[in-house]
Design a protein around this nucleic acid. Structure first.
Length: 474
DNA sequence: TAGAGGTTTAT
DNA sequence: TAAACCTCT
């Protein structure tokens, strides 16, 4: 019977039941729904931490679906092949998904759409990941925005799609397609530091994310604007990993944030601005995908990055630069899969300026380590700090990691949380780092503080000079 | 979303 | 005498 043919809801980075237009589209068909996750080559190639975190998210999301009378079907292979297999097995004649915006996904999705339509399958792709589709935001001249503030001004008064409740239940097909077991995908296998170290620091799933947002907007948002720069204060929303995997929608953050603002909560507007930074990153990636791989500003192509970053890069990755703020942050990253925003700017500045190591090395390390990894935000962030990106800080805006410490960790609380050396009675977090490091790292067994990898003044001057030279000769 | 170094101002 | 302010990179 044609009207009982199921619809496939192809799930990617939208592990949520609320505010999910793809799910809404599936529900509107009135057909039984097959929620399908495809472990395709692109996802298999994810960095260690993102892949691990995706596994946690899928596990939780499968349970959420079961709570609504449904289940998650897991399959491995090239997306088009798998979709065709599941269509053949289930008799489905419709497929829905919510869009991704990186160039590979765009290319793949349009090919798949074309092929499935040729197979006489109804295909629908929806928004949901972003509040503002990148092609709907343009300057008066019709171009893309290259600077954040005008972008913000152009979107802040727009309407954002309404929130959508989770469905009470999802209609299920007569027979479920066969499914793989998530455990067989070994999503955490590449975690050299051990999945057990990172897992307790993760906040997994839609319910946890919504609770966290409520807590944040009830309480911490009031002091967000000032406290957000102090990494030892729990002042931020900490929702980046949930946003990255679609366990919460930016729409929900926007609407609840706007409500907090209307209720006079100081800091709420600043929070919304930060959510819109993510939209800006997607805007940039959509309109100039080369931001993922090349200097966004071509004049940077002549900059003399260190040719062999070897030892210095390793010390940066290991949190052994000898600078407290940098080392604390890099260890936080390794242990938790996350890093405070201010710390991200500082370690990125240190790598690209003081060490003169190409931003792509830092970007790749983050891509391997961050449970909240997002291609657009990562690339924009690195190029922004390096100075090669749009809306870039001028190159001479070089963070002094010790100066930043005085400003933003005056009591040394953040540093003590992450650096065990020299402390007789240190926090669990700092010990977690020593538990987590791979043997190959060969850290100092005597727990002595590392020597500075470079003199701050010398590093700064070297970078400024190199920049000047590359501009003069370039 | 910066830092350095100098100059002016407040106390 | 230190904090605030300014300018240049």
């Amino acid at each position: 019977m044609a009207d009982t043919r199921p619809v496939i809801w192809w799930i990617r980075r939208d592990l949520r039941l609320r505010d999910n237009p793809a799910l809404s589209a599936a529900l509107e068909t009135g057909a039984p729904i097959i929620p399908l996750y495809i472990h395709d080559p692109q996802d298999e190639g994810l960095g260690a931490a993102p892949k691990f975190r995706l596994g946690l998210g899928l596990e939780r999301f499968a349970k959420a679906l079961e709570g609504r009378g449904s289940r998650l079907t897991l399959r491995r292979g090239k997306a088009l092949d798998v979709l065709r297999d599941v269509i053949a097995e289930s008799g489905a004649d419709q497929v829905v998904w919510s869009r991704l915006y990186d160039p590979e996904a765009i290319k793949r999705n349009s090919e798949i759409k074309e092929q499935l339509k040729a197979d006489d399958i109804t295909v629908k792709s929806t928004g949901g990941r972003l509040m503002f589709e990148p092609w709907t935001v343009a300057t008066k001249e019709g171009g893309m925005y290259k600077v954040y503030t005008p972008f913000w001004k152009s979107v802040r008064d727009r309407g954002v799609d309404d929130l959508i409740d989770a469905p009470a239940r999802l209609a299920k097909p007569e027979d479920w397609p066969k499914t793989d077991r998530l455990a067989d995908y070994s999503m955490g296998a590449a975690m050299r530091r051990g999945a057990d170290v990172v897992a307790p620091y993760c906040r997994v799933g839609e319910d946890a994310a919504l609770e966290q947002l409520d807590d944040f907007l009830d309480d911490r948002v009031a002091s967000y604007k000032t406290d957000r720069d102090f990494p030892a204060r729990a002042a931020t929303s900490e929702l980046s990993e949930n946003l990255a995997w679609g366990e919460i929608s930016p729409h929900r953050m926007w609407h609840l944030g706007a409500r907090a603002m209307a209720n006079g909560k100081q800091g709420a507007e600043h929070f919304l601005k930060e959510v819109v930074w993510r939209e800006f990153a997607y805007h940039l990636m959509y309109h100039s995908p080369q931001i993922l791989t090349r200097n966004w500003r071509e004049e940077w192509d002549g900059f003399p990055w260190q040719e062999d970053p070897g030892e210095a890069l390793l010390r940066w990755q290991q949190g052994r630069t000898g600078y407290d703020f940098v080392d604390a942050a890099m260890r936080e990253l390794y242990v938790t899969g996350k890093m405070h925003n201010r710390a991200r700017m500082i370690v990125a500045s240190f790598l690209t300026k003081h060490l003169m190591i190409h931003w792509k090395h830092g970007m790749q390390w983050f891509e391997d380590c961050l449970v909240d990894w997002d291609p657009a935000s990562n690339a924009m962030g690195w190029q922004w700090v390096a100075g090669s990106g749009p809306d870039a800080a001028p190159f001479f805006r070089i963070f002094n990691p010790d100066g930043q410490l005085v400003k933003f960790d005056p009591k040394g609380r953040y540093v003590r949380n992450w650096i065990a050396e020299g402390q007789s009675d240190c926090p669990r977090t700092a010990l977690d780092f020593y538990d987590a490091i791979p043997r190959s790292w060969e850290l100092d067994p005597d727990m002595k503080r590392p020597e500075p990898v470079i003199d701050l003044k010398r590093g700064r001057e070297r970078a400024l000079e190199a920049y000047k030279d590359s501009r003069d000769t370039g």
